[in-house]
């Protein structure tokens, strides 16, 4: 028996990935890891708020001038923003398409219901939607300052304190940060499996790493509103 010989033109790598559930999940994993890397940098920047308004505001200013003198002011910032926007879109669209497919693949529920999988796993989809809505509010609040109660350009320290001095600012933020923790907990470990990095020997390490990342990120982010509420930062 002769093997099938492939004479057809090779489709592009992007098409191969996007057409397959395994490839699309890999897109989701990589875009998720990009955002996770950003969150690690973000939480470290946030913690500078504990060193006073001068240091925090200087850091905010540096974000606009980083990459200089090679890059013009805000160019590096915009490069990061474009990369992040691409990651968010790739992550969201692949998640939406894969979820639609998953729901179609299991149209009839079992009559005998029982609790399935962990809380973090079950809340990935709605948790993702909550995070997307939070990001919109977060950008309007502290980037464009549209809905910020103080909204003073160039004074991020004062704007952060103003947001966390309102009850709704605290509630929205705390809920979203819990969602981040849950999302990262399942997401990081899942991404490792999707990209083929998981095996039986490494599983424990990956789970500990996922839980550690989730915990450190949530604790780091939550510490800021808690500090404002308790008056440590004012």
């Amino acid at each position: 028996m002769a093997l099938a010989t492939r004479t057809d033109r090779h489709p592009s790598l992007v098409r191969v990935f996007w057409a397959s559930t395994v490839g699309k999940k890999a897109v989701m994993a990589v875009s998720g890891l990009i955002m996770l890397g950003y969150l690690v940098a973000h939480v470290m920047g946030n913690l500078k708020i504990f060193f006073g308004p001068e240091e925090f505001n200087a850091y905010g200013h540096w974000l606009r001038t980083m990459g200089g003198p090679v890059l013009h002011e805000k160019w590096a910032l915009w490069l990061v923003r474009v990369a992040l926007l691409a990651a968010v879109l790739a992550h969201g669209v692949s998640a939406y398409q894969l979820s639609r497919r998953d729901l179609r693949a299991r149209p009839v529920r079992y009559v005998h219901r029982r609790r399935r999988t962990s809380y973090a796993t079950r809340t990935m989809r709605w948790g993702g939607v909550i995070l997307a809505l939070f990001i919109v509010w977060h950008l309007l609040d502290l980037t464009t300052l549209t809905v910020n109660p103080r909204g003073q350009e160039g004074h991020p320290y004062e704007n952060v304190v103003a947001t966390f001095s309102t009850w709704y600012g605290d509630v929205i933020y705390l809920v979203a940060m819990l969602a981040v923790g849950l999302h990262v907990r399942h997401g990081f470990w899942s991404a490792a499996q999707t990209l083929g990095a998981g095996n039986a020997a490494r599983d424990r390490t990956l789970k500990v790493l996922a839980n550690g990342l989730a915990l450190v990120l949530t604790a780091g982010f939550v510490s800021v509103p808690v500090a404002v509420m308790t008056g440590v930062v004012s």
Binding site: T21, V22, R101, D102, L103, R104, R116, T117, T121, W189
Partner: peptide
């Protein structure tokens, strides 16, 4: 028409 993997582990 099978779904994709969400690593639920079931």
């Amino acid at each position: 028409g099978f779904g994709g993997c969400t690593l639920a582990g079931e």
